[in-house]
């Protein structure tokens, strides 16, 4: 330890303000770069998962419709369309 006491460490000679300003801003900026990168990966992952779920649901619906031999009921068709709208935004 270079300093004799914690107060001396905080004061940094007479340069405390400058040293702590530089280190504080560095901590904030580095933390932000890390957090924002994590956040951007998380949000894309969430969207891709939603799209995959939607696609799975649509194939299921389509399969059921072919089996029952008719077109989808009105409400199911609306669900389908709503799903496509979501996936485009």
């Amino acid at each position: 330890m270079y300093f004799d006491s914690f107060t001396e460490f905080l004061q940094m000679g007479k340069h405390g303000l400058y040293v702590w300003l530089a280190y504080g801003s560095t901590a904030l900026v580095l933390l932000w770069t890390w957090l924002s990168a994590q956040q951007s990966l998380a949000s894309v992952t969430r969207r891709v998962e939603q799209q995959a779920q939607l696609a799975a649901r649509n194939t299921q619906l389509a399969a059921r419709n072919t089996m029952s031999g008719g077109a989808a009921t009105g409400s199911e068709r609306e669900q389908n369309l709503a799903g496509y709208d979501e996936s485009e935004t």
Binding site: M12, G13, K14, H15, G16, Y18, V19, A22, Y23, T26
Partner: peptide, 10 residues
């Protein structure tokens, strides 16, 4: 003095 410690982030 101690201001040189800014070098470690700069």
């Amino acid at each position: 003095g101690n201001s040189f410690r800014i070098m470690y982030v700069h």
